[in-house]
Design a protein around this nucleic acid. Structure first.
Lengths: 189, 189
DNA sequence: CCGTTTTCTTGATTTTTATCAAGTAGCTTG
DNA sequence: CAAGCTACTTGATAAAAATCAAGAAAACGG
């Protein structure tokens, strides 16, 4: 079983048959550090599953890069609106490291419902989980200080925090690198 | 056609037959100001569509109320995680005014896929729209100042801003009522 | 319509966080 | 290994926003 199959299995409780049908639609691919999985303003025509490595999702705002999230092993990634509605993507998605992914094309993705009867229900549950994560994140912004927010994300995403340049972490937490640096110093004392 | 049917029609492009099948599963109901549609820690067993009035969604955090959103005419509202996974709801949902809603029970909601073949696809597109809104909101927190955020939300939700107590708006924007009051004064000068 | 309550505004002050600038540490690579 | 990057830390200062407190305005109930 590939990581993709294992992940699909643990997450979606597919049986062996469905598992193979789904994973057969994904193609393995490797991006080099700096390569883009998706560029802003282009249509998103693929969805990927991350096998290993780090993928930074960011937007350009008047010359500044705003990092929206860093995805890593076990994440499914796409610009959902762009994938579904064929609108221009708002995000750039760039490999921060060598990145091993499984890629499914839009056309195949759209046929999943025909191929696997329980796909729509499965996908809904998956989207609901994503919802929860986004709700948590919004809640962290309206109810926590920068310091609380840092700890909240650190607890939930330790694997990211030790590998990603501070400037990107800071941006996705809505604070500056200096602020994170000072929060970390407090920890040590 | 009821508002619910009109809304379903414009949003989901259902045909007349499906429209009636779906809307028949909703029951009209009126909540009085102060009544709760849902209480935190209870399971969410209903989804509602707001016909008129204001519904405040908030959580209690060590004695303080944190307002996550104010929903109004045309919104579908539920605690999605709780509705799907039967986990305890994290949100309180309280009517800020007399509130006219259409309510569908969990059991009926779960049968929509059987009743309307295109429901799963429709629901996915709907969820994708919600995703976009949440992404926008997260983006506003990581890339804007309080003032920019205020204007951003004001432009998108004028109907709410003129009807809702400042303290609730402030909370959902992640700032204090005093800050909003000062932002508004600037406008006038 | 009047008193009560709630909401909003304003000013003074404090706290938090950003900005600017300089220096340090750690990598990378020729 | 030395030069050049990049990332990180630290301090000084400025800006943004929160807090506290008091008063004004609006809404509400009898």
């Amino acid at each position: 079983m590939t990581d993709l199959e294992q992940y699909l299995h643990s997450y979606f409780t597919f049986d062996q048959d469905d598992l193979m049908k789904v994973s057969a639609l994904f193609k393995k691919k490797t991006l080099n550090k700096g390569d883009y999985f998706l560029k802003a303003d282009k249509k998103c025509n693929q969805l990927c599953f991350i096998q290993s490595g780090l993928l930074r999702i960011y937007a350009d705002v008047d010359g500044k890069e705003v990092t929206q999230w860093i995805s890593t092993q076990g994440y499914f990634v796409a610009d959902l609106s762009s994938l579904l509605f064929q609108t221009p993507s708002r995000w750039n998605m760039q490999a921060l490291t060598t990145l091993d992914i499984f890629v499914i094309e839009r056309a195949e993705y759209n046929r999943l419902g025909e191929i696997i009867p329980k796909w729509p229900e499965t996908e809904k549950l998956f989207l609901a989980h994503c919802f929860k994560m986004m709700e948590d994140r919004i809640f962290s912004f309206i109810s926590m200080t920068a310091e609380e927010r840092y700890h909240f994300f650190f607890e939930k995403n330790r694997e990211i925090f030790n590998q990603v340049p501070l400037q990107y972490l800071a941006s996705m937490l809505g604070m500056t690198p200096e602020t994170i640096s000072r929060i970390r110093r407090k920890q040590l004392m």
